[in-house]
Design a protein around this nucleic acid. Structure first.
Lengths: 332, 332
DNA sequence: TTGTATGCGTTATCAG
DNA sequence: CTGATAACGCATACAA
């Protein structure tokens, strides 16, 4: 910047003011400055600027990267929105464990990000404490806490009703009466909601939730396969399965294949989470599709609004998934 | 920090020295400082530190996010490696266009990242110029330039031989003589190499490359479908297809489905890039699988080595993809 | 073993 | 309309 000032024969503060359009400057002076910027190839130092202004124009994202398609989609959506608004994005992986989550958040905090988008782990209390102490603008994504946290914004999708809809479809349209569920990792809020939706769907259609098998998968293919075995390897196994997220779905379809089963033949499946290829490969999956792009853009929007006005009341937004009826639930 | 110093009754420089272990300090003093840090909840300001030291401990990634699975995998691998080494990762999307690429790079540069991992667009000259001017440590990923760029490290996979292997498999094992290719976006280095590999494979097996249809897809589903139409809707269409990357594969399988074709019945396919579900869904794809994790970790390793020693000679590393023979190429 | 002073590159306040 | 100057929070050279 001092280079630019020297070349343009002005002071550093004038250079700063033309760059930031922060006060009136003589058109001729401005022209000289712009030319000097061009000539020297000057680019402002965001680090120094941040130190001075207290704002970094960086948003931090902390979520688990384990479920690759969902992670990739959300990251993509967030990056796009954040960039559109003139911000950059720092990415950190929570691995869905409280320790890594805390570590990720600390990194974000030390970089003085202007705000954080967090998909909280199963035990996020330490994380919340850390965040609260720093009073950093925060929006929770994907997992919307049941208890209303003070001044914490959140975006997620509806889980209970959509899963109930999936169950109802299995019962009413395809006549299933023995339905099991492979739920995602235990402890996560979305998992709890999806299980609740499963039970609700059963009840509403005259089935007994206490007799339906629910097992947790979603952490690894092996663990998910074990969950399936617990559900299927019994005297009267279910004839239909609700799969709680995309990781579970991929692992279960793979495992069913090993058993020689391709839904809907042998067993019917419905899944939470869609895939770009769900319509092209067999079995063609019947799914509840999350509006991932919207999730990302709304998260950023909420966050920027809170950065602009920290006094806002906390907002929780729930988006509607879309029911994609295809073939894995039984041919129509 | 001044808070900490006051509470511990020492100077700011002592606090700095205990945090960074940068000179001997009396055990008692150190204890007092650590307690003061704990009590005040102090966390060093990375922004101020960066301004002072000239290092941000941030790595920038610039690549296209369009091909979601590949993007997600690489990002995941990079994030993990970078975090392990005590760095953070800023993510930017080049959209695979020179303008956006330049924009992304400028953002990275303004944040004074310590190094950049770039998947160059088809016309990266402006980007390279910008980078060279700033002399920022750089490693190219995925697309390894043919011409040896001075002092630019690069990691990618072998493309020519692996695609030739795919073609050979089609000819020798399954007896195809009319083979077409849906290549990825034109202009990208990897695309050129994969087409070269396609031609090489044809020649080696006594087929005439000049008679084989090669069309570009990979930018959108529609454009990829159009490429397929140009290949298939002719008097003597190919009986086998080489699919140049994962985006192309998903779009083509979807389009074939609309035409009532499920490989290998009707047409055989082999693809570059694997999917986690490629083995479980029909058609079970025969693929060349990229070692994505390794790609990411090697990129980071090369970058950190160059940051440590900018005088190093440029290194190009090519990883070997793995041939996954499944069913889409014809049942064995 | 510890403290003081300086400067990193900005922006913002205050004069002129 | 423009320039000089201080301060942001840290790391480090120099002093004690």
């Amino acid at each position: 910047m001092s280079d630019v000032a020297r070349v343009a024969n002005v002071s550093a503060s004038t250079v700063s003011h033309v760059i930031n359009k922060t006060r009136k400057v003589n058109p001729e002076t401005e022209k000289a400055v712009r030319e000097a910027i061009e000539a020297t190839g000057y680019a402002a130092d965001a680090v120094a600027r941040s130190l001075r202004t207290g704002r970094t124009h960086i948003i931090g994202l902390a979520m688990t990267a384990i479920s690759n398609t969902y992670f990739g989609d959300v990251v993509h959506a967030l990056e796009r929105t954040v960039t559109d608004r003139g911000y950059s994005l720092i990415l950190t992986d929570t691995h869905d464990t409280p320790e890594r989550e805390l570590h990720a958040l600390r990194a974000l905090l030390s970089h003085r990000v202007d705000g954080i988008v967090l998909a909280p782990s199963a035990a996020p209390h330490a994380a919340y404490a850390q965040l609260a102490r720093r009073k950093v603008p925060l929006v929770l994504i994907d997992r919307v806490p049941a208890e209303f946290l003070v001044n914490v914004d959140a975006v997620g999708v509806q889980n209970v009703e959509p899963i109930a809809t999936l169950v109802e479809h299995l019962v009413v349209v395809h006549g299933h009466t023995r339905i099991g569920m492979v739920a995602p990792k235990a402890g996560i809020i979305t998992t709890q909601e999806r299980i609740a939706g499963f039970r609700l769907g059963l009840e509403r259609n005259g089935l007994d939730p206490s007799e339906a098998a629910v097992e947790h998968g979603g952490e690894s293919a092996e663990q998910t396969a074990a969950a399936l075995a617990r559900i299927l390897d019994v005297p009267h196994p279910p004839t239909a399965l609700v799969l709680g997220n995309n990781m579970v779905t991929v692992a279960i379809i793979s495992e069913l294949r090993k058993r020689g089963i391709t839904p809907p033949r042998g067993i019917a499946t419905v899944s939470f989470d869609d895939f770009p290829w769900a319509d092209s490969f067999q079995p063609r999956l019947t799914t509840m599709s999350q509006p991932v792009d919207e999730l990302g853009s709304i998260a950023v929007q909420l966050l920027l609004e809170r950065i602009a006005d920290p006094g806002l009341d906390a907002r929780h937004v729930r988006l509607e998934p879309t029911f994609e009826v295809r073939e894995s639930c039984g041919c129509p």
